[in-house]
Amino acid sequence: MIESGQIKLFVIIALLIFILLVIFIFFFIVLYFKRQLSYKNKIYKFQSQFAQTLLQSQLEIQEQTLNTISQEIHDNIGQVLSLAKLNLGTMDLQKPDLLQQKIDDSKVLVGKAIQDLRDLSRSINTDYVQQMGLLRAIEYELELLSKAGKHKTIIDIQGAVYRLDNQKELILFRIVQEILNNVIKHANASRITVHLNYRPELFILCVEDNGEGFDISLLKESENSKFGIGIKNMHNRAKLIGAEYSINSSKGNGTQVSISLPMILNSTDHANN
């Protein structure tokens, strides 16, 4: 009788231990799945946020491109064509010596308008930028600038040149265009230098000018102004491709904008084998 009571106790203890183990494992599995679910939700939210930012950036780029086209047509091509029209309109058939001169001038002006249109088309064409690659696209942009005669441009390349993926190259190129636009509009610079440093683990792009520069502290104060928003946009675009954007400037010492993009190396370090 005593033994059967003790065996009962023994079985109860065994059962208790078994139940505790089952509860522990069940609790562990439920907890893990719960956390896994919230982690997946977080990832999903992050991805949709990223897609939204990407879309927003693309729209901004598109809008900026349209502005550039409009400005370019109005300021350059429109002016040149108006001049050509004026030339043609003031032709006097009675003065044949002046007539030839006006025809020649008009030819030059129309030729310039065609060239400007071609440059503009190349500069905004996404496929063209992707075909040429970032380096060639920047070189071309600098060539155009130096052709205008107002700025001396220098390009400095360090390391063995490699291609980045198309999306990254395009975004970097648009940032460079924006920086160059800012230099032309606000810096009053005579020299623009673009440094491209192709390191195996890091790609660094730096645009430097010898213009007036500005007080960097104003940037924080004017976050909501157009000036601040432009820089914030560039910062966001750099962030979008995983790059670091930094700006350095002071009054009278020009401006230096630098973007560093870490390169993803092929990971072979699987665990600690």
């Binding site: 005593i2 033994e3 003790q6 065996i7 023994f10 079985v11 065994a14």
Partner: peptide, 12 residues
């Protein structure tokens, strides 16, 4: 009690 009980031994 387990030493004595054959059944308990078997269960364990």
């Amino acid at each position: 009690f387990v030493e004595k009980g054959e059944l308990a031994k078997k269960i364990s």
